[in-house]
Design a protein around this nucleic acid. Structure first.
Lengths: 138, 138
DNA sequence: ATAAGCCATGCAATGGTATTGCATTATTGT
DNA sequence: ACAATAATGCAATACCATTGCATGGCTTAT
């Protein structure tokens, strides 16, 4: 297991330190995007700032992407595809559940083309759908 | 002029106080969405908290809508149509310019229907397109 | 093997922001 | 005009991202 985690780090040219392995392992366990505070709670030992910088490093190297789901606090989730460092704009839909307050990546649901007024040139897009997730629907 | 502003407030059942008239006048002058701090700078006299609550009131009464453009600080813009109190989900596209860092409402560009996985029921949507606006394109 | 240099970590501190409580002031209805 | 209600302003709180700086550990070259 740990070997696989280290390989994942190495493939993104990230030095596999103990802290980074812990954070990545925690991220791999999630099925929704989590915040810095969530990670801090999940890892009793670690310093908040170190996690913060770890996430920055992961993001810059295209291992994770950050999601602004409208709560103000960014969430983080693993990149599914091979997103390179420069263009890992998370062009898929994110879903925020108003009930459980979790944020889900929907990587199979791409954002459709949007027509813009003339003169506006798009670079990235961010679509948050809010509602009730499948777990809370019952 | 002021009469028109007061009518606008009255039509949303908002008491037309001096502060609210000032804030609404400032909002009417904008062609992009502005933040609380922007308004604070625009109105030398006013207290930040008062503006904060004024905006909350405006938002609750369907006069303005708040936009999470990914910067973390909410922006506010007038609602174009008659959006009622409960359902003024800003279902149109918002554009954030990476150059001038302004946020524009594109009320004529609705968010297309998004297919979701089974079990997910949407309530509101928020689409931010980032790129270069028409003013900065030249 | 040792020393130098780089990288990661942790602590402390800063700054910005939303948010609430409470007392005062303004506004509305009678 | 007066009482009730609403709005305002000040103070304080709390949360979060972000940076500086010093320490520690690992790598590399000599």
């Amino acid at each position: 297991m740990k070997l696989q985690v280290e390989q994942k780090l190495a493939s993104k040219k990230i030095n596999p330190t103990a802290m980074r392995i812990l954070v990545l392992e925690l991220l791999l366990q999630q099925n929704s995007a989590i915040s810095l505070s969530d990670i801090e709670k999940g890892l009793e030992t670690a310093d908040r700032i170190t996690i913060y910088r770890t996430l920055k490093t992961f993001e810059q190297n295209g291992l994770i992407h950050s999601i602004e789901d409208g709560t103000g606090t960014p969430k983080y989730a693993l990149c599914v595809e091979d997103c390179s460092t420069h263009e890992h704009y998370d062009m898929h839909v994110h879903f925020y559940c108003n009930s459980c307050e979790e944020t889900f990546c929907l990587p199979d649901h791409k954002i459709p083309d949007i027509s813009l007024p003339t003169g506006f040139s798009p670079a990235e897009m961010n679509l948050i759908v809010k509602g009730i997730c499948e777990n809370c629907a019952q």
